[in-house]
């Protein structure tokens, strides 16, 4: 299974890139995923926070397929996920 997570704002510096790839092969911004397990946004978020501990301090929202989500959501291999922090600058 391969999922791309788009990263915005101050989260980019924490994660090291403006996207994270979750797939089978480990690399700097990727996390190992098993094919036979169904994933949801809670478990993905947990994995991200383990991989990037600074994320735990940050406030951000998650969108799946360009819809904001407010609760745990099942994701599929074709899901498009984004993590977005608030901006305040002007």
């Amino acid at each position: 299974m391969e999922i791309k997570i788009l990263v915005f704002g101050s989260l980019v510096e924490i994660v090291g890139n403006n996207f994270i790839e979750l797939k089978e092969l480990p690399s700097q911004t990727s996390i190992h995923l098993k094919d036979d397990i169904q994933y949801d946004t809670n478990s993905i978020t947990e994995s991200l926070k383990i991989k990037f501990p600074e994320l735990s301090k940050m406030k951000f929202v998650i969108s799946v397929d360009r819809n904001i989500i407010h609760e745990n959501t099942i994701i599929h291999s074709s899901s498009e996920i984004a993590i977005l922090p608030p901006f305040s600058g002007g």
Binding site: G9, S10, F87, G90
Partner: peptide, 10 residues
């Protein structure tokens, strides 16, 4: 609503 951060905006 409008807001910016570095090179990005909302």
């Amino acid at each position: 609503f409008g807001a910016v951060f570095q090179y990005e905006g909302q």
